[in-house]
Design a protein around this nucleic acid. Structure first.
Length: 435
RNA sequence: UGGGGAGUAGCUCAACUGGCAGAGCGCCGCGCUGUUAACGCGGUGGUUGCAGGUUCGAAUCCUGCCUCCCCAGCCA
């Protein structure tokens, strides 16, 4: 026997043409045509087809074909060869096949399945082509977000998950007992904490899971989702919008440059992503309502945009659309009042094209102590819960702004997914807590 | 929380007006030296979501319950 072959990743096979290598992975599928058989092997980095010809491989290897079932783990050894007939352009002439564990009755087959069945088997579904590509894009976007922000002097300031203060709306909180301190709730947002952070570090962000107990059953909602929340001291609402635009452009460029293969495998229309270039249209709420009315919407001034309105609005443009200066009645208490219109606040939403809806909500924050107290009272929120937050306005208050970007909605948009449940590894929905 | 749709083999779905429970995939067996969700032939596989009712007879009609899917509201 010669030396043990080098163990390589399938993703790197192109650099090992002509060499004999070892791959450790799982059987994705198999096909046979009598005296020639094909083992489609995946190892987490990619998929490669192994070929065995009867009489040209040891009988022991040849006979493993009959034993190996879908998703059995195995170790194969073979010679890397370029071959246009093979998907991926590279295939493996097998010399040895060693089963590690034989899988029996793997539930996910090559034919179609329903979404409920697949979600029940999410722990296994992750191995399938579609989730595999989606979650690679998700990982890439997380990396690109952090890269973008650190490149601009941001500091990551993690906000707590267990909180006492209410972030936005009471009534949609997940609650739990917290020792002698009463009820704790899972954070709906880290915003109040990054507001504290930006006064210490200038530009900060938090990025983690957030929780909403809304009983909504739509393709645009999860009960647990990841939100990026940058917060910047000395930024006004227009600086805020410019940063959002740069970030979104960066994410699209990153995805196209680094995940083109994934997006193609997902059959994403790349042309519509390539069209996402600055500047994005910026409409005031009043202008957006006019556009919607002339497009046939029955929206009344003061209402927030529904799903249909968002689709209608973005259909007018080929790139994401900013809408700013919303009515105060439609927005959260902490947003700063418009200097010329007391019925508006200095905020913005960003709507993704092609009906993917709102991916960002942001605003300049109310920085005046007394005015902020008025806002809290107007919303009938418990003033005591905001004591530390109010102190930020007593010790060197400055204009500041920030926004929240929904990661899953961004992933869904970039990957072209019809439902958010595919944009997160283990989705939490109103009727789903497992796996 | 409202509106709509659907539960039949392990999976995806058929079954006309109430009249023998079916197909493809999977799985098992046989065949095939380049397959691409391989293919051909044969076989395996059912408490028709649960409980009750109508009927000579119910997957099918009626009542209640459960579950899932889609849409709306709310939001990221």
């Amino acid at each position: 026997m010669g030396e043990a072959p080098k163990r390589v990743a399938i993703a790197d096979l192109g650099r090992h043409v002509g060499e004999t290598v070892e791959i450790r992975g799982w059987l994705y599928n198999r096909r046979s045509s009598g005296k020639i058989s094909f083992l489609i092997v995946r190892d987490g980095t990619g998929v490669v087809q192994g070929v065995m010809v009867r009489g040209e491989v040891p009988d022991a290897a040849w006979e493993t074909y009959d034993v190996l079932t879908q998703e059995s783990s195995l170790i194969v050894e073979g010679t890397v060869r370029e071959d246009a007939r093979s998907p991926g352009g590279v295939e493996l002439t097998l010399h040895a096949v060693t089963p590690v564990q034989i899988s029996t009755d793997y539930p996910i087959g090559p034919k179609e399945h329903g979404s409920a069945f697949l979600l029940d088997h999410r722990h296994l579904w992750l191995r399938s082509k579609r989730p595999w590509h989606v979650l690679r894009v998700r990982d890439g976007l997380i990396f690109a977000i952090r890269e973008f922000l650190h490149g601009r002097g941001f500091l990551c300031l993690d906000s707590p998950i267990l909180t006492q203060a209410v972030g936005e709306e009471a009534g949609t909180l997940f609650e739990t007992e917290y020792f002698d301190l009463g009820t704790a709730s899972l954070a709906q947002t880290g915003q109040l904490y990054v507001e504290a952070g930006c006064m210490a570090f200038g530009k900060v962000y938090c990025f983690g899971p957030t929780f909403r107990a809304e009983k909504s059953k739509t393709r645009r909602h999860l009960t647990e989702f990841w939100m990026l929340e940058p917060e910047m001291a000395w930024y006004d609402w227009e600086d805020n919008i410019s940063l959002q635009e740069e970030l979104v452009v960066h994410l699209i460029e990153y995805a196209l440059a680094n995940h083109g293969d994934d997006l193609e495998a997902l059959e994403r229309d790349l042309a519509s992503l390539e069209a996402v270039k600055p500047p994005f249209p910026r409409l005031s709420y009043d202008e957006a309502v006019d556009v919607l009315r002339s497009a046939g919407s029955g929206i009344e001034w003061g209402q927030d945009f529904g799903g249909e309105d968002q689709t209608l609005l973005t259909a007018e443009f080929d790139r994401p659309v900013f809408v700013h200066s919303f009515p105060r009645v439609a927005k959260a208490f902490y947003m700063k009042q418009h200097p010329d219109r007391s019925d508006l606040v200095l905020c913005n939403d960003l709507f993704a094209p092609e009906g993917f809806g709102e991916i960002i909500g942001g605003s300049q924050r109310e920085d005046d102590h007394d005015r902020l107290i008025e806002c809290i009272r107007e919303e009938s929120l418990p003033l005591a819960a905001y004591d530390w937050y109010l102190e930020l306005r007593k010790f060197g208050s400055v204009p500041h702004s920030g926004f929240g970007l929904g990661l899953e909605r961004t992933v869904a948009w970039i990957c072209g997914l019809p439902h958010l449940r595919e944009a997160i590894p283990f989705p939490r929905l109103i009727n789903r807590l497992s796996p």
